[in-house]
């Protein structure tokens, strides 16, 4: 892993116009992804993780959505400034994505093998026969049982977990340099999940692939991520090396997430979710968006929006956007 970033997101802003008003889904997010590195994007449902990924791929749904600020630099080029044909080309060959919802991203009327093979036909000019052989090989690699018998199945004949593996196979087809995976293993049992995460790790070792992993699973993140970026209401609220952030959370939202987890051992107790309701993006509070749910909130939090700064007393590069980061760090259990 070299320290030069492959991907550099700076002050990204994405807006959607809805019947109720303009929603700022991503509001000034910045982070880097280095070569061979795994960065996890964690955060509240609706905090802008998937929209950030869509922006990287140039697939923000139009005309409702548009990028209104910032840059996304990939390998020295600003993706937001490239013509659409160039981004499409990059997206086919170098940047691949596994989408959150496998059923709606697979075409229900085409056979699974043909859909995977299409990647090779379109981008590599493979013959039908070659594409079929490549598709079969990939289906085996992602652990689809009796792959040769299932090439001609339709997506609805696969279980949720098998469809997810098909999506992963399609994303890996062209050996991308950057893989953006949105909840890639949520539908999988833990042994298959471990197998898929191993496969991704191997590709990272062998081919230096970078991985942006969007997930709600804090355990998977601890297992595979080098760094973690936490989002809340469209902003990055905390970022840093995985162990550092988990063990020394410097933002109350992160601490709240860690505290909501059911344990795999020890006594069973009532769970303690973060209090209050998720933010309404159309009606955000002044200052810090997390303030109405925060036990540390003070007047300053209402007046002044906190910016992402080094976590006090913690080694760089650990940063937090909280006026009371120092107190959060010392009060944590």
């Amino acid at each position: 892993m070299t320290s030069e970033p492959l991907l550099s997101v700076r002050d990204l802003r994405v807006e959607f116009s809805t019947s109720a008003g303009v929603v700022t889904a991503v509001d000034g997010a910045s982070f880097d992804v280095r070569r061979g590195e795994t960065v996890a994007l964690l955060g509240e449902s609706g905090s802008g993780k998937s929209v950030t990924a869509q922006a990287m791929l140039g697939i923000i749904p139009k005309p409702a959505g548009r990028v209104t600020g910032g840059s996304i630099e990939y390998d020295g080029r600003d993706l937001l400034a490239l013509p659409a044909t160039a981004t499409r080309e990059l997206r086919g060959r170098e940047i691949a994505m596994v989408f959150q919802d496998p059923l709606s991203s697979l075409n229900p009327v085409f056979r699974v093998g043909a859909q995977i093979g299409e990647m090779f036909r379109k981008h590599r000019g493979a013959s039908r026969k070659e594409a079929r052989a490549e598709a079969l090989e990939l289906m085996r690699r992602v652990g689809i049982p009796a792959a040769e018998k299932r090439l001609d199945d339709y997506p609805h004949q696969f279980s949720g977990g098998m469809r997810q593996r098909v999506m992963i196979a399609m994303a890996l087809a062209l050996s991308p340099r950057l893989l953006i995976a949105d909840e890639p293993t949520t539908a999988l049992d833990v042994t298959v999940q471990a197998q898929i995460m191993d496969l991704l790790a191997r590709l990272q070792d062998e081919e230096g692939m970078s991985l942006v992993l969007i997930t709600h699973d804090l355990g998977v993140v601890a297992d595979v991520a080098d760094r973690v970026v936490l989002m809340y209401a469209g902003r990055v609220v905390e970022a840093g090396p995985i162990r550092e952030v988990y063990e020394h959370s410097a933002h109350p939202y992160t601490a709240g997430l860690m505290g909501s987890l059911p344990a795999i051992d020890g006594p069973r107790e009532r769970l303690t979710p973060i209090q209050g309701a998720p933010p309404d993006l159309l009606d955000l509070p002044s200052g810090c968006s997390f303030r109405p749910r925060c036990a540390f909130a003070s007047e300053r939090c209402a007046d002044e929006e906190p910016v992402l700064l080094g976590a006090p007393g913690r080694p760089a590069p650990h940063s937090s956007a909280c006026h009371h980061a120092g107190k959060v760090l010392t009060d944590a259990p």
Partner: peptide, 20 residues
């Protein structure tokens, strides 16, 4: 059937408490 799988862990905790 996987009723809480897509939720973030805080919302998941709310829904699990509700089910209980």
């Amino acid at each position: 059937d996987e009723a809480v799988s897509a939720l973030d862990v805080s919302v998941q905790a709310q829904v699990l408490n509700l089910l209980a």
